[in-house]
Amino acid sequence: MSALHTISVSPTNGLINSCLRLVCPGDGILFIQDGVYHCCPPCLLDSVSQDNALFALREDLLARGLLCKISERITPVGFGRFVELTIDYDKVISWS
């Protein structure tokens, strides 16, 4: 069963390491709220496998002035796509 992992706190928490231990091939990761700080350099996401899609909430990127700074691997998504993602994956695992 695939999972969408949502991360809502900044990289200072080190939560991404715990999250990545649970991530399986085919899982997606969506950054929201202060979690979007993961998406700009120094990028902590280089080690994430190409099997895992990476998303960030566009509104949260815009609010923090990060939309033009994010790594190419990240796909910005709006709220509508956020909702679709929660349906596309079998379950959501939230990291906060």
Partner: peptide, 11 residues
């Protein structure tokens, strides 16, 4: 740990 999360219906 990874398998546990993967096979659970809800986490």
């Amino acid at each position: 740990v990874r398998q546990l999360a993967a096979r659970s219906d809800v986490v």
